[in-house]
Write a protein that binds this DNA or RNA. Structure first.
Lengths: 343, 343
DNA sequence: TTGTATGCGTTATCAG
DNA sequence: CTGATAACGCATACAA
């Protein structure tokens, strides 16, 4: 017979005080006499009392929980982002409710609705570029939220960085090294705003330096080591005369480098490889690779700060005079070139 | 002025029915007349009603939420594991509450307590090898839980795989290739049960084949690309005469391979590299690397199934006659050798 | 099939 | 400083 876990009431009885006192002992200890406080905590420990979050949430109308929805996070830069977000939230006493349905499931269910039902005080959302109605709706409902890794032009509270600038940085760097024929292995842009912006940025940067990206020097593929390997094999077999390759993310880059090695093409001696660094930097610093360090952790931290600020505001019983849609775009540090030390 | 979000009551009034009816319309639609059901849902849509999870949880004594605690998950195999767990739980209508404090924070706070307060129906726990009291306590409290990636000998409901067997597989494979001098770059074993088991397994497998691991052929380092690179540089400079290297995880392996390349040592021509594959397989299949495919996703799926089964049991108003501590160890498929196709 | 009433465990308000 | 007591929003047993 599962005996019901101890409640505030049980603690109160054991300590010989009222429930109100126990509640205060937990949330506002300074309001109690040394003596009663001690009595209460003794009872709490004795019973191994654990507060019931649901009841608290119901009474306080706050759950101390923040929801995050991202498209998949196993092995992608998203996990780094989420980790940073989680760290900051935890420090502030919040917990992260996660929804990361992979592609197939994303259509069936509505992760945001699920999170809202569970009761989150705020939301961090990655993706949904094609669903502006969702943000409007959240705004109408007064749910604090922020878009993660968002496109530059988002009308909603967003955090992100300038992918175009990152692309420019990269092209600049290679140009400075003397490269005039540059190939590009990018991610699929169909349903990926980030991949799209990256490609766009590359094209712009190239053309502004009077270079072009012939179609046989460009490959669009899924992010992945094997895909990068295959793509590079293709590029080689096409024998167009590039001297540098830009890769849409670091998995592609790592794969590409391997392919070059296998073909006995020295890197960066004969061909330079540069890549956007979606994933954890320290774990992936390939000495043969020039990497654009993207401010991903900063993004997570800033997102958390924005949300927490917003939540604290909400705690003060004042109407939030700032319409969410006008909140200034939070910003991260700029992307920077990361030179490998080993080459 | 934040107008209070619509409640069951509001819906009921608008639809001209009672709260009980609305409640049933949502959870047990089949019990209602076509007509009233329709009326109710119209009201729901009109008001954009979203059920209040806290209230529901309070009334039902279940939160439809599962907590997971892992030590850090940005860029590690843990993210793959969590993704698999999340997928399965989502399909079953559950949501994942995540706690992944990095090392520093793990000491300050108690993630498990936090999760329990938030109200989770069950827990999936990775780590805590040195805190048996925690599991005892959870068991006493009747909280369904499972240990993830657990050591073989855990007395609690656990899921994991045989690291020794994986190590043996690896050594076997290299032995079959003719290697007799094998080096090992492993993770730090101090606070990492998995790293410890891996090293142990390697040692056992080697000695059972009359090979040894001289101390200058063994390096213990943090998991990471750069660390693997550095470790391999060291091994090379020590000029001991190994012909193969086993790496504790794939970051180390990737770094090691890079170092070999930089030193113009052909892989696997001159030196073979093999590594445990903690991370997402498809993203990391390095053609120059022989990899032990670890059943990580299976682990996540099985963990979810175990928990869900346990939860369903709990839904049936029967006492759980099975003491948790005697539940059979769930198992995953065996680890398998993954040959690279490109070499 | 639907309505009514009570309980779930806390917090918060208001007296004392 | 502490004790009653009324919400909080929903599920459910029971009554109609």
């Amino acid at each position: 017979m599962n005996k019901r876990p101890p409640s505030l009431n049980d603690v109160a009885t054991l300590a010989g005080v009222s429930t109100g006192t126990v509640s205060r002992a937990i949330s506002k200890p300074h309001l109690l006499t040394e003596k009663t406080r001690k009595r209460v905590f003794e009872a709490i420990n004795q019973l191994r009392y654990v507060p019931n979050g649901a009841a608290r949430a119901l009474a306080m109308k706050r759950t101390l929980t923040v929801g995050a929805v991202v498209p998949r996070f196993g092995s992608s830069g998203f996990s780094t982002l989420l980790q940073a977000l989680e760290n900051e939230l935890t420090d502030a006493g919040y917990t992260l409710l996660l929804s990361a349905p992979d592609h197939k499931r994303a259509q069936d269910i509505n992760p945001i609705a699920t999170l809202l039902e569970r009761g989150v005080d705020a939301l961090a959302i990655l993706g949904y570029e094609d669903r502006p109605d969702i943000f409007t709706s959240l705004n109408d409902q007064g749910v604090p939220f922020i878009r993660l890794w968002a496109p530059q032009n988002s009308p909603w509270p967003s955090i992100g960085f300038d992918e175009h600038q990152a692309a420019e940085l990269m092209v600049d760097y290679l140009y400075g090294l003397g490269h005039r024929k540059i190939a590009f292995i990018g991610g699929k842009i169909a349903h990926n705003e980030r991949a799209r912006e990256r490609q766009e940025g590359i094209m712009l940067a190239l053309s502004s330096r009077n270079m072009s990206l012939p179609s046989d020097a460009r490959i669009e593929s899924d992010y992945g080591f094997q895909e990068g390997f295959d793509a590079m094999q293709q590029l080689i077999s096409r024998s167009c005369d590039f001297t540098a390759v830009i890769c849409g993310n670091d998995y592609l880059a790592a794969g590409a480098i391997s392919a070059l090695h296998v073909n006995d093409i020295s890197v960066p001696g004969k061909i330079s490889v540069a890549g956007f660094n979606d994933n954890d930097f320290s774990a992936f610093l390939n000495p043969a690779l020039t990497t654009i360090r993207l401010p991903i952790e900063e993004m997570g931290r800033n997102a958390a700060h924005y949300l927490l600020t917003h939540l604290d505001k909400a705690m003060i019983p004042l109407p939030m005079e700032l319409p969410v849609s006008l909140v200034k775009r939070a910003s991260t540090g700029p992307a920077t070139i990361q030179n490998s030390q080993a080459c």
